[in-house]
């Protein structure tokens, strides 16, 4: 299977690559648009600042390409946030694949920011391919201060506000947590993504 990790210049690229290696997949980390377009699976990772990451994608000439991909794409952490129309982190326009805007997490009284640590999900769609083998008892590792709205969420999480933990839109899926750092359950989620059938692609993306 030909899996590519989009080189967003962010620091967690190596961790994502290692996680895939542990699943038996050697992934190419690249910003070469022809390699990305030809891949069976595309992963959009990211940590850090939305504005910096968008500038990096702009510089690499990938902004139009990512939205036009038709194979299964998985965004991770900031990669999820970049799929939305805009982010209030740096007040920046993002890739515009998923409707909505990323806003600061409102943790409320007694909760710390960043939302850093292991948390559980509330599944809204247990039938999503990413949900296979993962119940409500599974713990995932989060590190973030901004979050996406719940409209297109397959699973949500709460840290004060409820926010999108896993989203799915057309052939795009994304998770706010770090599956590459979420021990066995994270590995299972990444394996679910790799095993996802291309037939999941809806008919709308012709």
């Amino acid at each position: 299977m030909n899996v590519v990790i989009i080189d967003t210049g962010s620091a967690n690229l190596g961790s994502v690559r290692h996680a895939l290696t542990r699943l038996g997949v050697v992934a190419d980390t690249t910003c070469d648009s022809s390699k990305i377009a030809a891949a069976d699976r595309v992963i959009l990772p990211g940590v850090g600042h939305a504005r910096t990451a968008m500038a990096e994608l702009e510089r690499a000439g990938l902004i139009g390409l990512i939205g036009s991909l038709t194979q299964p794409v998985l965004g991770i952490c900031l990669g999820l946030q970049l799929l939305y129309e805009s982010s209030s982190e740096g007040d920046v326009d993002c890739l515009g694949v998923i409707p909505g805007r990323v806003e600061p997490l409102n943790a409320g009284e007694g909760l710390r920011l960043p939302h850093m640590g292991w948390n559980q999900l509330e599944w809204r769609n247990n039938n999503d391919p990413l949900a296979r083998g993962l119940g409500p008892e599974a713990w995932f590792y989060f590190v973030h201060s901004f979050a996406a709205p719940v409209e297109h969420a397959v699973a949500t999480c709460c840290h004060g506000d409820e926010f999108a933990a896993i989203v799915r839109y057309r052939n795009f899926a994304a998770c706010q947590f770090h599956p590459e750092k979420s021990a066995a359950v994270g590995a299972r989620l990444m394996a679910n993504f790799l095993l996802e059938s291309r037939q999941q692609e809806p008919l709308t993306c012709s």
Binding site: M1, G24, G133, A184, V185, R188, A191, L194
Partner: peptide, 17 residues
């Protein structure tokens, strides 16, 4: 506290590649 939920070995995606 995070108590690791068990995923059976047969359920993990051996041979994904």
């Amino acid at each position: 506290t995070r108590i690791d939920s068990t995923i059976s070995e047969t359920e993990t995606a051996a041979g994904v590649g």
